[in-house]
Amino acid sequence: MNLHATAQQTVGPYFSIGLAPLYRADLAPAGVAGDRVTIAGRVLDGDGAPVTDALIELWQADADGHYAHPDDHRGPVADPRFTGFGRVATDADGRFAFTTIKPGAVPGPDGGMQAPHLAVSVFMRGLLKHLVTRIYFDGEPANAGDPILTLVPPERRDTLVARAIRPGELAWDVILQGDRETVFFDC
């Protein structure tokens, strides 16, 4: 069958009208098992100016490394309150923040495992299609052997790793352009 996916178009500046009902800055309701972490940062454009109209979506496994999705054939997540979905917008300073639990390691290619990570989509005016990136965790020993991180040029890998600021608090920025540009994936 000769079908191609519908072309993407920018989310534009007014996405909150349609997307705010599903804003979720806390991915893990109280009582969901796991180490609670807050990840905060800024979105900066090619001039280093804050992007005040960006939207960030998050997708992650639970603390056992299970996804709340039928194609994770290892069975349902332990706590049905955990959906793994987050959605936050940047504020007038280009800042965003969300709280979640650190995911467990999840299966990777060729029978191996991937280090704990969040899958991230970034939307904004000026992006004709969304950007895909990942958040890994500072100090995680499994990062060194992660099958996706090792595809990234070594000098750019740290753009995908949230830095530990204090216990339970991490910092991770989205740099759209330049020498410190965040690694974006062709997903």
Partner: peptide
Amino acid sequence: YASTAKRAPTQPLVLLPHTLSEITGPVF
């Protein structure tokens, strides 16, 4: 589309093989 000038990535994208993280997604 002028807004792409300061917002579109300038470094090459890294090809991401699809893993369990990409073939699953939020369910509502």
